[in-house]
């Protein structure tokens, strides 16, 4: 078999242009973690069930473990590293997760944070059903989800009080 071709891949991640060489089969999740050192995006089940690897592509939550990095070029990718301000102040969704104890082991948290951030950007006042539906693609084995739902309610308050 011929040697595998390496491609020059250019990704826009959290507003920064990142370049690296990788084969076409490099998954976006592995590119973020391995090639770009952005290990905030977690990889759980690796086959599109758990939602840990959720990132935003053009502001929509998607699974980075089911996306090839090379196919995500020219898109705007956002990861958990892009949520907090440059000075370290937490995004309201992060602050709400912290205050409401919406995590225990924290493994699933980056995925939940990205999913919740996209939800509140698209629907600043989601109802209970919309919150449930939005979170349907993220699994958490610690919290039982109730504190995560509470945190999203609290994040809505924080975001509205910011204005």
């Amino acid at each position: 078999m011929n040697a595998e071709v390496s491609h020059e891949i250019v990704l826009n991640v959290n507003g920064e242009v990142k370049r690296f060489s990788a084969p076409a089969r490099r998954l976006l999740s592995d590119a973020l973690r391995g090639d770009l050192g952005l290990t905030g995006t977690h990889v759980g089940c690796e086959h599109g069930v758990c939602g840990c690897c959720t990132v935003l592509i053009d502001n929509q939550p998607v699974r980075s473990c089911l996306t090839f990095a090379i196919a995500a070029q020219d898109r705007k990718i956002r990861t958990v590293e892009g949520l907090a301000d440059a000075d370290g102040e937490l995004h309201p969704v992060q602050a709400a997760f912290k205050e409401c104890h919406a995590l225990q082991c924290g493994f699933c948290t980056p995925g939940f944070l990205m999913t919740a951030t996209a939800l509140l950007e698209q629907r600043p006042n989601p109802d209970e059903e919309e919150i449930t539906e939005a979170l349907a693609g993220n699994l958490c084995r610690c919290t039982g989800y109730q504190n995560i739902r509470s945190a999203i309610g609290h994040a809505i308050e924080l975001m509205q009080s910011d204005i």
Partner: peptide, 9 residues
Amino acid sequence: VGDPQVRHR
């Protein structure tokens, strides 16, 4: 179909 992440792609 699936969940929101699946439906976005």
